[in-house]
Amino acid sequence: MRLVAENLGGERGGETIFAGVNFALARQEALVITGRNGSGKSTLLRIVAGLLPAAQGMVRLEGGGEQHPTLASACHYLGHNHAMKATLTVVENLAFWSDFFGTRARDIDEALDMVGLPGIGHLPFGYLSAGQKRRAAIARFLVSYRPVWLLDEPTAALDTASAERFGAFMRAHLEDGGIIIAATHQPLGLDGAAQLRMDADA
């Protein structure tokens, strides 16, 4: 399985914000995207996720097989929003995504334990603090399996211990044969990951 981007360009509101981005990631490889605010990190991730059209070039998944015919179907995406309902409990939220995504990987209780939120599954998601919400959203990645993780500032609002724990999840996912693309301002603890600076030519 390979994730390939060729001469990729993105625009927002008719204005080109980046162009000519190339990268190729095989299994067990990660790409860390850095750059100043507004340099197009989130736009790049949304183009890879298939949520925005590419202004030029293309991004594709090679060798996804029958299970992942397109790139979007192979991706977990963590954006600025958590895709969780404030009035449903944490367990109800995770159970929904686990059912909807299929490819069950772990029990919900086990995933909540792993992100350090044991015993709060019965609370409505809206009651959690910002960091707890982020951790519950990360638990979504753990309950169902997708080979490609797209992470938009995954450690924002996380404390140091949680960020380190999340780094361990990412390393385990890579060792398992996954692919990670992360946009971030903070070090993620991914040694040996490829780097992409979005404002290199600005």
């Binding site: 015919p69 954006g79 929003n81």
Partner: peptide, 16 residues
């Protein structure tokens, strides 16, 4: 759309 669920529903459109 506001909580980001819509993105994931659209991304899943190959399966559902």
């Amino acid at each position: 759309r506001e909580d980001g669920s819509l993105d994931l529903l659209v991304m899943e459109s190959d399966r559902h």
